[in-house]
Design a protein around this nucleic acid. Structure first.
Lengths: 232, 232
DNA sequence: TTAATTTTGTGCTGTATAACACTGTTGTAA
DNA sequence: TTACAACAGTGTTATACAGCACAAAATTAA
């Protein structure tokens, strides 16, 4: 993982949750140590087994966190949107990465050496609380997800993924989801094979819940999707 | 959830991770506010949707954390052994409980009002780190579990559960697992129906990986179990 | 342009596993 | 003892889904 250093980073543009919790000195420390790296579409950001060195913050683009499953079947664990922090779990657990991260589309990531974060944490209770909160929320999501992925039927799982994408990335003017995924990624998100993702997707078209134009998914009946997600 | 107050609790017997991180004043605060409650076999400790009020520590017994799934199919999310803390995620996430907890067997639980924990946290960085670490570890386990439960076949899932029980609760002198579960609980742990748990279990007997005597599971070939868990 | 590769879409087949029904066993209480 | 409930075990059937194989379309490369 090469690194492009840029001592002067414009943090004003990404005034975010974490930034608000810091004092001037801490902010300066970040400015001096953070760097920004750009990732091309499909480029791997870190891999399973890598040693965690950075707290990462996605500034632009979309990132997937996934695990290599049995015989190449990847499972997308969560998805990151700007401005969101990630890649810190492994370090705090004292482990290597259990997951991998890759850019869905051209993305910019801010890298903060994890030791700098540790130093700030020591004297910043608010930041501690931030991570405790964030980890707790994510753990709850993971628990929910376990049950949803194991117990819901294929329609429910796919509908759930679509609802999740709507909630995470939003809809644009013509009510199509603001992210363009390959059918395979959609399948990996919903724990099914690519063919079944395609099939089920076209069922949703027949039922007038969505309309398709290549990778563009236009949401016609969001309520219907939510209903299928809940009961399926 | 009724509460039995006991101002004087013998904490010396459960000198544990958390206790070590506190100073005298903080320990005194705990002593004055903690209470112990006993739960009978199968008694519910908290339910999905309850407001989290306490940090809990299991002193004696065994506890399951589970979620009600589709049409009564429960999924056991994790299991607690003494001395282990639990029931804090929901509060830190600012949510109600997403899971339920129940005692597998007669259990004693120490209840610490969550506000007391919050007060101590403010001035105790080590305790902050403890929770950050614990949550990070649990999140990693949850991520692993998601993939295992969705991608492994039934044999692999059951073997994994058995290995997990061995690692968590250990074997006694005659190498039988130190926990006695109903077949249904074993099924809920492994994401399968009760009949399939029974069937697969007796397959393992035929293959001389285990021996059964009622709910007692004697481990004959632990390596074999681990192999099935990994490759199944 | 052609060729090659990736992605999407469709039909068919096999199978893992859920669902159900029923019997046998054990434990508990009257 | 009997009666009843909870649990364990087994066989049978149904089905959701994976796993191909292959065609069509879209994308990229030459």
């Amino acid at each position: 993982m090469e690194k492009k250093h840029q001592s002067i980073i414009d943090f004003s543009s990404n005034l975010n949750d974490v930034w608000r919790l810091l004092n001037d000195k801490e902010r300066e420390l970040l400015r001096q140590n953070a760097s920004i790296q750009h990732f091309k579409k499909n480029q791997i950001i870190y891999s399973e087994g890598d040693e965690p060195e950075f707290l990462m913050c996605l500034l632009k683009g979309k990132v997937k966190i996934y695990k290599e499953g049995i015989c190449g079947r990847n499972q997308i664990i969560r998805m990151i949107k700007p401005i969101q922090y990630f890649a810190y779990r492994a370090h705090f657990a004292g482990e290597k990465y259990l997951t991998a991260a890759a850019a869905f589309e051209s993305s910019s990531v801010c890298l903060i050496p994890i030791q700098v974060v540790e130093d700030i944490l020591k004297h910043n209770f608010a930041l501690c609380k931030y991570f405790i909160h964030q980890l707790s929320v994510d753990l709850g999501i993971a628990d929910e997800r376990t049950v949803n992925l194991t117990q819901k039927h294929i329609r429910g799982r796919l509908a759930e993924s679509l609802v999740f994408l709507i909630d995470s990335y939003g809809l644009d003017e013509d009510s199509s989801i603001n992210i363009y995924l390959a059918r395979e990624d959609l399948a990996n998100l919903s724990n099914m094979t690519t063919s079944n993702a395609i099939r089920t997707l076209s069922n949703f078209v027949t039922e007038r819940a969505i309309a398709l134009d290549g990778r563009k998914i236009k949401v016609i009946d969001e309520d219907k999707l939510r209903k299928i997600s809940k009961l399926g």
